[in-house]
Amino acid sequence: MNLQIVMLLGQDGVTNGAIYALLALSILLVFTVTRILLIPQGEFVSFAALTMAAMQSGTPVRMGWLLVALALAAVALDLYDAARGKGRWRPRGAALAMLAYAAAVTALTGLVPLDKAGVAVQALLTVALVVPLGPLLYRVFYQPIAAAHSLVLLIVSIAVHVVLVGAGLLMFGPEGARTEPFSEEGLSIGMVTLNSQTLWVVAVSLLLIVLLYAFFERTLYGKALRAAAVNRLGAELVGISPEIAGKASFGLAALIGGLSGILIAPITTIYFDSGFIISLKGFVGAIIGGMASYPVAALGALFIGQAESFSTFWASSYKEVIVFTLILPVLLWRSLSHKGAEDEE
């Protein structure tokens, strides 16, 4: 192993690690605000990547149909709640607006020749398709049981993941896909050539982290979400609706997942079920951060990226084994520094 290989592997590690860090942050955000472990986080990644790939190859983009189906379910749930006396006797404006939006985006993706539209338009449209998935999933699957035991929330998360993977197979088929790189040129510094996609990933990740920081530190919505994360009941008492907080955190998670998918689609071949393994590495980062600390989770995820990259070199077929076994020492450390039995809500 010479310096060149080290640099190459390190670069790969940084690229993947940055994506894992984004996912880890998003997982933590959803977990602290809603107590939900967002197992379907990875589906945002794979759906975005495959949607983008479908646009570029000129095959029909079927993501919109999932949105329409979920939006219909949301309207139906609103009506059902109303019938049981829990709301007004007509769907709420938000649900109808979402349905209209889903129909419009679906129509747009069906009518416009997307393969000629250019990467920026494709990416924008992909984001427009993936982000509403977040709030819709929250509305349809989680909102009716938002107060349930965290065990129930976890099981529902697993079930939603299973449903989405099945839907992914239905929408995108079993074949993997890769998209065109955003730009061709790399950047040469001395003997090292930085891959252009690496630069894109790092730049977008940093930008996203800065934006998230600004959102949580500077805006009222961001502060409200933080309040909901610290104390759900207290936040509700001062007027922060847990529904809004849940939908907002899911929307952010879908945005982060969707952007991650667009960023890695040119580097890795993505299949309908690839998202899970990718997001699980974000989970490992979040576990390193103790399901609580953002900076430690991000650093942990970067470390996972490096560990994965270097184990590809030494023992490529054992890559996943090594990465997932890494959580054992982390759990040991967590376990030793923990004391006392606590009942969970």
């Binding site: 699957f141 079930a159 939603v160 299973v162 449903v163 099945g166």
Partner: peptide, 9 residues
């Protein structure tokens, strides 16, 4: 799996 997942939910 779609049916089972929805059934569980």
């Amino acid at each position: 799996s779609i049916v089972f997942g929805l059934l569980i939910v």
